[in-house]
Amino acid sequence: IGSLMYASIFGNVSAIIQRLYSGTARYHTQMLRVREFIRFHQIPNPLRQRLEEYFQHAWSYTNGIDMNAVLKGFPECLQADICLHLNRSLLQHCKPFRGATKGCLRALAMKFKTTHAPPGDTLVHAGDLLTALYFISRGSIEILRGDVVVAILGKNDIFGEPLNLYARPGKSNGDVRALTYCDLHKIHRDDLLEVLDMYPEFSDHFWSSLEITFNLRDTNMIPGSPGSTELEGGFSRQRKRKLSFRRRTDKDTEQPGEVSALGPGRAGAGPSSRGRPGGPWGESPSSGPSSPESSEDEGPGRSSSPLRLVPFSSPRPPGEPPGGEPLMEDCEKSSDTCNPLSGAFSGVSNIFSFWGDSRGRQYQELPRCPAPTPSLLNIPLSSPGRRPRGDVESRLDALQRQLNRLETRLSADMATVLQLLQRQMTLVPPAYSAVTTPGPGPTSTSPLLPVSPLPTLTLDSLSQVSQFMACEELPPGAPELPQEGPTRRLSLPGQLGALTSQPLHRHGSDPG
């Protein structure tokens, strides 16, 4: 009997000691992992102490058991019943959930998450997105703005933001810190809205009876308010094209079509300037034949640059190039080494500058006005007194259609001029006259002087055409309008007829 009692007592005591040691061994194993994590990542002392304290409290609170892992091991129907039991206190005593059906309560219970916070733990920081609604079931918390405590909340209090009033989550206007050990039930806004969409009859009752104890939403960050730039940057990543407008005076608003859609830094370009900076079609017209890549860069430059609305530039004389043409100036200075066709295309550029300027006046029909002061630039669209967005969009579309028509007509005119030049060069190729044979009589004449090349004649003739079109064909006081194609086609051969009437002889060394 004594040996039996000794064996039973010894066996029970050893089993008890073994169970104690097993729990202690698990605790030390998990604690060792936490300390190894702290050492590996070199976490500083204040945060390291918070980690160790939280682990110790969580171990004593749950005995080292992962409740979520245990809950996920059950089937979904059983999980709903378990969640309904775990959140029964909240669902029974909170006013917004009263009167809900059994199915609605089960769906809500599945969406709730339980959070346990030790003292000093910050649940929400200032500036964080308010993605959830919090219900306090135990403990107390404090809300701070800077170093000032603005509120202390306790059991059955609710904090967050009214989700039904805002389409997008706002930002917190303060820090939420736990004063004691707290148990909180939180539900994400997407989950709550999903359940309320499934039960629309409960939705009206819920929003009407929901009383948020403390609204954390920062009202200064609401979209459309003066301080909402940061919020707009976070939620409006896919922005449309940006529009900046110059201020319109009362006198300017009476004149229709007073602005032109141009790229940034293009205030001095012609009315047909689009795409790359520098001139019509993204580059100076005089350098068009020598740089074919300008047409390839036109599309990307047009689509990537934001639109700006600026006044037209001052008018340019008909014979003056659009500006920024070092290529043609070098050719004029060193005409001995340049291609003979460069002079002809220089005359073509003069005609283009004249036609572009006159067509700009035809479509816009307003006098040039000086540029406004820099303080009046970049007025935002949302400022008071601005035109409605639809009106601005319609004006932009009208300007775009005008620019497209202008570009089409300029292309047709350019093709006409090039065809005339090619026809003239085919009839009378460039050549130098040879020395004529002296006559049989004693009164022999001296050799004839060489005839100037055709490109120079073409430049003079085209300059005469531009001056003739600019000065004589337009009646005084009438708006400057571009001439039609047949009129220009008839004027060019008439001007060139006198020049080509002389018999030109080919030089023996000319390969053409």
Results as ranks from 00 to 15, higher is better:
454 L>D: 13
444 S>Y: 13
195 V>G: 02
446 S>H: 08
229 T>K: 11
186 K>E: 11
179 L>W: 02
493 P>F: 11
441 G>F: 15
158 I>V: 10
375 S>K: 07
176 V>L: 02
435 V>C: 10
261 A>H: 10
332 E>Y: 07
179 L>K: 09
318 P>M: 06
219 T>G: 08
238 Q>Y: 09
297 D>L: 07
389 R>T: 03
193 L>R: 08
187 I>S: 01
460 D>T: 12
163 L>T: 12
250 D>N: 04
470 A>Q: 08
320 E>T: 14
198 M>Q: 10
237 R>T: 14
326 P>N: 04
238 Q>D: 10
476 P>H: 12
211 E>N: 07
442 P>R: 09
237 R>V: 13
326 P>Q: 08
406 L>F: 05
454 L>R: 10
388 P>D: 14
325 E>D: 08
145 R>F: 03
265 G>C: 07
237 R>P: 12
135 F>V: 06
395 R>V: 11
291 S>Y: 04
418 L>R: 08
285 P>C: 06
145 R>G: 02
414 M>L: 13
329 E>A: 13
480 E>K: 09
370 P>G: 06
505 H>R: 08
137 S>L: 04
155 K>M: 08
336 D>Q: 10
306 P>V: 13
509 S>K: 10
257 G>Q: 06
376 L>Y: 14
294 S>H: 13
445 T>D: 12
407 E>M: 06
384 P>A: 10
434 A>Y: 10
450 P>D: 11
427 L>R: 10
351 I>S: 10
236 S>G: 10
442 P>G: 08
497 G>V: 10
388 P>Q: 04
387 R>H: 15
164 N>V: 04
255 Q>N: 14
244 S>A: 09
290 S>T: 05
354 F>Y: 07
206 F>L: 06
183 D>I: 05
173 N>G: 10
311 P>I: 15
181 Y>M: 05
498 A>K: 13
216 L>C: 01
315 P>W: 15
381 L>C: 09
387 R>P: 08
475 P>T: 09
200 P>L: 01
418 L>H: 09
356 G>H: 07
254 E>M: 06
235 F>P: 10
182 C>D: 01
426 T>K: 03
439 G>C: 09
350 N>T: 14
392 V>K: 05
186 K>T: 10
412 A>M: 09
432 Y>L: 09
202 F>R: 02
453 P>K: 08
298 E>Y: 15
356 G>K: 15
159 F>E: 02
357 D>N: 05
410 L>V: 08
365 E>A: 11
434 A>E: 15
164 N>F: 08
479 P>Y: 14
156 N>F: 12
206 F>H: 01
153 L>W: 01
432 Y>P: 04
464 Q>P: 13
252 D>G: 09
386 R>Y: 15
412 A>I: 08
353 S>M: 07
206 F>V: 03
500 T>P: 08
311 P>Q: 09
171 K>H: 10
459 L>C: 06
302 R>Q: 15
262 L>D: 07
134 Y>W: 14
433 S>N: 14
478 A>S: 14
347 G>R: 11
179 L>Y: 06
460 D>N: 13
366 L>P: 08
232 E>H: 11
148 V>Y: 08
127 G>S: 03
304 S>D: 11
304 S>Q: 08
316 R>V: 06
341 L>R: 08
236 S>Y: 12
377 L>Q: 05
127 G>I: 01
226 P>L: 10
239 R>D: 11
334 S>N: 15
211 E>F: 06
303 S>M: 11
292 P>L: 10
510 D>V: 13
431 A>F: 09
473 E>G: 12
352 F>A: 12
421 L>A: 06
455 P>D: 04
381 L>N: 15
358 S>I: 05
482 P>N: 14
146 G>L: 04
314 S>G: 04
392 V>Y: 05
280 P>N: 12
197 D>Y: 08
305 S>P: 08
347 G>V: 11
234 G>L: 11
172 S>D: 01
251 K>W: 14
134 Y>Q: 03
255 Q>C: 13
164 N>I: 03
189 R>K: 05
243 L>Q: 15
217 R>H: 13
456 T>Q: 12
237 R>Y: 09
383 S>G: 09
503 P>A: 12
185 H>K: 11
221 M>T: 12
242 K>T: 09
445 T>S: 10
228 S>V: 09
246 R>C: 13
500 T>V: 13
213 T>C: 05
316 R>M: 03
127 G>D: 03
190 D>A: 08
185 H>S: 08
410 L>E: 03
252 D>V: 08
161 E>C: 01
266 R>K: 11
361 R>P: 08
352 F>P: 11
143 I>L: 01
318 P>C: 15
139 G>L: 02
384 P>R: 10
213 T>W: 01
475 P>C: 12
272 S>H: 13
252 D>P: 13
197 D>K: 13
387 R>Q: 13
139 G>T: 03
453 P>C: 08
429 P>E: 08
177 R>E: 01
250 D>E: 12
357 D>V: 10
141 I>P: 02
457 L>A: 09
462 L>K: 13
175 D>F: 04
270 G>A: 11
298 E>H: 04
141 I>W: 01
443 T>V: 10
131 T>R: 06
394 S>D: 04
346 S>H: 08
260 S>E: 10
176 V>H: 01
353 S>G: 09
349 S>M: 11
450 P>W: 01
500 T>S: 14
221 M>D: 10
449 L>T: 08
337 T>H: 08
200 P>W: 03
